[in-house]
Write a protein that binds this DNA or RNA. Structure first.
Lengths: 226, 226
DNA sequence: CCCCGGCCTGAGCCGCATCTGAACACGGCA
DNA sequence: TGCCGTGTTCAGATGCGGCTCAGGCCGGGG
């Protein structure tokens, strides 16, 4: 999962960036409204954390512009305590959730999980697919009850696949959602990690669709008699 | 499906060309208005992606000329951000959809799918014919609920046939819409792939009309006893 | 009835996407 | 500093999918 963090306070953004990173997100950071707007238009984020008090362009304006352009990415806004009007105008502009400073990073993480879940149209807090289960809260996964020992990237990969199970996911899309801006787009790490993941969860679960990408099939029996 | 990509920026066109190619389109590329006009007149495209800022002849002019000549191919225009006047004149000139740069290739693909669907006069997002179903979004097809395992070309072939079900399609037409410019027109790959497709979806579904071509019949239980 | 094309099909070649094992790089930790 | 766990790179192996070819089939016209 990839998140855009829009926050001008240097300390806070550094802290949040590492917290989000530790939680398994690929994080890009924008320090002002202009940069935020540009990045949001350019890169495909899964969720956006938007502080409202920003230099150059105000957070609400940025959000409004995104929504006017048809951008649907879930946005969580950060407001200073008691800035009620901000909160209201934020929601009016199309925010999906808000959080007043100061807050515990745990709460931010929880809300982001909820947002991602909602935007994917998933009801339950844990993902499952065949005998696979994944709990974003505990960052833990299992096959048939057997807990899996996954590295960070393996986990992120599985997470993304499970969030979009049944759909073909291109290598490009995976790179775009698992890594942040500066990453060598033509490298074969994805293939390597798909391989490693397969070794751990069973190779028949991730189907490769030649020329298009990979697909995690929700149905247990693979059944390709055709 | 075959698409004409008109774009002068070398980087962007290269990127789009591969993206479209990966998505299963046969892609021809024109770098300026003159070439675009020529190709558009010469080859039978299913859809055209047209950038407006072009050398030689402006995109709007090209589009206007096509429309004046009675060309009905759906056209999606690309405009720079905020070029409102461009957008308006583009629509006036007969564009069917527009997209402002920068954009996500995913969105372009989605809009193209919608255009193709519309231009074929099909309401639903998925095609069906007898027990056959095909979902362009997921790039998946099935017979009687049974998912099909199709290769890229088999899929494209089936897609084209389903888009034009009930009509006789000549081998020439198939070649023109499944391949790009430089392809050996007298080869029997089409026959080979029709054969393979029949093997997977049931041989009675694709009827061959001797001397003319093939026809995918919309009626389900016709003539398997005959 | 025979011949002439058009159509079908099995086999096989070849290029390329994907896979894989192993080495390398990097950072944390003892 | 040296070990370990992770992520990345690289090169070679592998197998799929697209294409060609050659021979057989079949329908229609003479």
């Amino acid at each position: 999962m990839r998140v855009l963090l829009v926050e001008d306070d240097a300390d806070l953004s550094r802290q949040l960036k590492t917290a989000l990173g530790d939680a398994g997100y690929a994080v890009d950071h924008a320090a002002d409204g202009e940069e935020a707007h540009f990045l949001g238009d350019t890169e495909p984020y899964d969720v956006i954390v938007l502080d409202l008090g920003l230099p150059k362009i105000d957070g609400v304006s940025v959000l409004e512009r995104w929504r006017r352009e048809g951008k649907a990415t879930p946005v969580l806004i950060l407001t200073a305590r008691g800035a009620w009007s901000d909160k209201v105008s934020g929601f009016d502009a199309g925010a999906d959730d808000y959080l007043t400073k100061p807050f515990h990073t745990e709460e931010l993480l929880a809300r982001l999980r909820a947002l991602l879940r909602r935007s994917a149209g998933i009801a339950s807090a844990t993902l499952s697919c065949g005998g696979l289960r994944l709990d974003p809260r505990a960052a833990r996964a299992s096959v048939n009850g057997e807990p899996l020992r996954l590295t960070s990237l393996e986990y992120r990969l599985l997470h993304y696949l499970m969030m979009h199970q049944g759909r073909v996911i291109s290598r490009t899309e995976l790179v775009e959602h698992l890594y942040d801006q500066d990453f060598d787009r033509d490298s074969n790490t994805i293939e390597v990690f798909v391989g490693r993941l397969r070794k751990k969860i069973g190779s028949d679960r991730i189907e490769t669709v030649r020329g298009l990408g990979y697909r995690l099939t929700p149905l247990a029996g693979e059944s390709d008699a055709a």
